Amino acid sequence: MQKVKKAIIPAAGLGTRFLPATKAMPKEMLPIIDKPTIQYIVEEAVESGIEDIIIVTGKGKRAIEDHFDHAFELESNLEMKGKLKLLEEVQRTSKVDIHYIRQKEPKGLGHAVWCARRFIGQEPFAVLLGDDIVRAETPCLKQMITQYEAVSSAILGVQPVPDGETGRYGIVAPASQNGRLYEVAGLVEKPPAGQAPSNLAILGRYILPPEIFGILDSQEEGSGGEIQLTDAIARLALEQQVYAYNFQGTRYDVGEKLGFILTTLDFAVANPELRGATLKAIQELLVKEGAAPEIFLRDLRARDVSDWSSRSTG
């Protein structure tokens, strides 16, 4: 069995939900506290044992390449001023072996993955979407690789979402269940309200076999007039077994405004240097809005603060 050593990170989207901020800045470079969202994704891949990463970019995404390159003048300045901890943090981003390819037309996620076919070759590979940050004790992708090594088949990262939100995701129709692992009977991309086969949503993590590229070669446009990866995986499931894994950890949707705001708040509260000031600012805002900060803060302390953020992100 070949091990999963390569990963694709699609980053060619236009980021229209964050305009005008993304007019000149890739949405993947928008920071959660002091780190671009795409860096969280790259770090998860590296911590999961991925050795080669290809980022599929588009026009106006050069800042991503610059971020993961050496910045000699900046690094020299930090070293000269004795800011060695900050220097180490800056240099971390340039030690990863990253490749780049452009998606020349905005044809959807399936097409973006297909663009990396020559880089992947005949190996199993991972796909990590930049809109989904997962905070977990064991990296989400590492959990999935462990499952892949047990079943040697495609694995989709899923978590249950509220029934009213199934229309936002690719949804799995499970056939059978073994703990957190499901055999997949079928998949539906963004099913209409009331027509979802389950509430298990595919949340930005995949391990796929190279056979998916042959399917994507002939994949027709689907939801939104784009080539959908979910549709191609549904065809793959007709030829070989596909599994879904309900991964452990908190998933954050940073691809839309509310999710981005809640993620930033959650990460700020989890940061020892920012926690106190952030909670104080939240309390002052609640008072200003006529809410009850004592009840809110008591509830916040009584449970994992990440639950508060994930209420809106699935």
Rank of each mutant, 00 (worst) to 15 (best):
Y148P: 13
G157S: 12
P20K: 05
Q248Y: 12
E294S: 00
P191S: 00
I227K: 11
K6I: 04
P31Y: 13
E289W: 03
G314R: 11
L265I: 13
D131M: 06
P124D: 04
V96D: 06
L200N: 07
L187G: 02
L187P: 08
G255V: 10
K257V: 14
F125P: 06
I295P: 08
R251I: 06
A196I: 06
G276C: 05
L265W: 08
Q219G: 03
K85A: 12
K6R: 12
S176T: 13
K23A: 14
I8N: 04
I171K: 01
S198P: 14
K3I: 07
N199V: 08
S94G: 14
Q219H: 05
L129G: 04
Q39F: 10
Y148G: 09
A71W: 08
R102H: 11
V42M: 02
Y40D: 04
T166V: 08
D69W: 06
E105I: 11
Q177T: 11
R180V: 01
L156D: 01
E75W: 07
R17C: 06
K95R: 14
L30Y: 02
H99Y: 15
E183S: 13
K85C: 14
Y206L: 03
I202M: 01
A268L: 15
I54H: 03
F125W: 12
K280C: 09
D266M: 12
R275C: 08
A126Q: 04
G224P: 01
G290E: 14
E289H: 00
E189T: 13
L229E: 05
E123G: 04
W114K: 06
L229Q: 06
I133H: 05
I32K: 11
R251F: 03
G157V: 05
R298N: 15
G58V: 09
P26M: 09
I120R: 05
G314T: 07
L187C: 04
L236W: 07
A196W: 03
V172L: 12
G110W: 07
I33K: 05
L129P: 02
E273L: 07
Q122E: 10
R62F: 12
R251Y: 00
L19E: 15
R311W: 12
F119R: 00
N77E: 14
E123F: 07
F18L: 08
A244G: 00
R205I: 03
P160Q: 15
P162S: 14
A154N: 08
C140G: 03
Q228F: 10
T230S: 14
V188W: 00
A173Y: 05
H67Q: 05
R118S: 15
